[in-house]
Every structure is written in structure tokens, then in C-alpha cells.
């Protein structure tokens, strides 16, 4: 089957029911999305499909309809996405394992809701777990990213 990931189309020879996360990591070597729980309880595997945050551990390869974006395709070191900038500005990450999923979730959320309330930020980000407890910095970074995006 053909999958378009970060603007590049790949021909992959996998079973239809292989989770997209497996395809990305094991077939395509795109390791930004992380395996955490495998049942959509943690958010570490979050990617975008046509801009919408999706838990890639739950999406079967055969059910992918649309273009996939991973953290590798969100921005580049020389042209960071506003959410990535905010993450660096506020030094959000501690161990960093969950951060690709956090950033992808936040980027999709702010694309849909450019002026979120604090309660909406909490609700949008509560499906992404951080065992280091960096939640206060995550919340601050989402607010900062929202401001940055409104300036664009």
C-alpha cells in the first residue's frame, strides 16, 4: 500500500491491520512517534492525519486515509513550528519520551482552536501522559504557542 508521510509517498508491504505506529517505526524508520501503552491511553504515538491528531497505535495501516505528519515533518531545526519553539523557549521536556506526542497533540489542537481557554487546554492535553510531570510547563508552552501562532 502507499502511505504519504511528511510529504513523501512510500510503498509499504505490510498487513492491513498493522498499526500505523509499527509501520512508521519499523518499516519506515521514522521513530519520533513513540510506543507507550498500545491502547490509546497515553498519547506518546500521536501523529497527524490530514492535520488531525490521531493515536497511531490505534490506526490500522489499511485504514489510513490522508497524509500523515509526524514530529519529523512538523518543523525543521531552521524553521520550527510555533509549538516546537514554545517547547524550547520554556524548556518543557524532562526525559522527553512523551514530548513528540505532546507537541503533535498541541499543534493540532491550536490549529482547530486558536484562542483556547485554560480549561480547553487542559482537556485537549489530558490524553497525553508525562511520567516526569512536566504538565505545568506543557500548559504554559501551549499558551505561549497560541500567542505565537496568533501573531503569524
Amino acid at each position: 500500500m502507499k502511505l504519504t508521510v511528511n510529504g513523501e509517498t512510500h510503498d509499504v508491504d505490510v498487513e492491513d491491520d498493522m498499526p500505523l505506529l509499527w509501520v512508521l517505526r519499523d518499516e519506515l524508520g521514522i521513530t519520533g512517534p513513540k510506543y507507550g501503552c498500545g491502547i490509546a491511553q497515553c498519547g506518546a504515538c500521536t501523529v497527524h492525519v490530514d492535520g488531525v491528531a490521531v493515536r497511531s497505535c490505534q490506526l490500522a495501516a489499511g485504514d489510513v486515509i490522508g497524509d500523515v505528519t509526524t514530529i519529523e515533518g512538523l518543523g525543521t531545526p531552521s524553521a520550527l513550528h510555533a509549538v516546537q519553539e514554545a517547547w524550547i523557549d520554556l524548556q518543557v521536556a524532562q526525559c522527553g519520551y512523551c514530548q513528540a506526542g505532546q507537541i503533535m497533540q498541541a499543534a493540532s489542537f491550536l490549529d482547530m482552536n486558536s484562542e483556547p481557554t485554560d480549561a480547553q487546554i487542559d482537556a485537549a492535553m489530558s490524553g497525553n501522559l508525562c511520567r516526569c510531570g512536566s504538565y505545568p510547563r506543557i500548559r504554559d508552552a501551549v499558551k505561549l504557542a497560541a500567542i505565537k501562532l496568533r501573531r503569524v
Binding site: V52, A53, R55, Q105, F109, N113, Q120, G127
Partner: peptide
């Protein structure tokens, strides 16, 4: 529902986290 889910006025979570982020729209 876990994850502090709020479906919002849209009833699909468009204001926060879409239902389809986890509940994929495919037969399973």
C-alpha cells in the same frame, strides 16, 4: 471518561481533543 474528555458544543471534541483522535472511524 478518562483523559478529562470534553466533547464540547460540537459533541465531537472539536474544541479540545476530537473523539476520532482515539476512536478511529473504521470497522474493528
Amino acid at each position: 471518561h478518562g483523559m478529562h474528555v470534553l466533547a464540547g458544543e460540537s459533541r465531537v471534541g472539536a474544541e479540545t481533543m476530537p473523539c476520532r483522535t482515539c476512536h478511529i472511524g473504521a470497522q474493528s
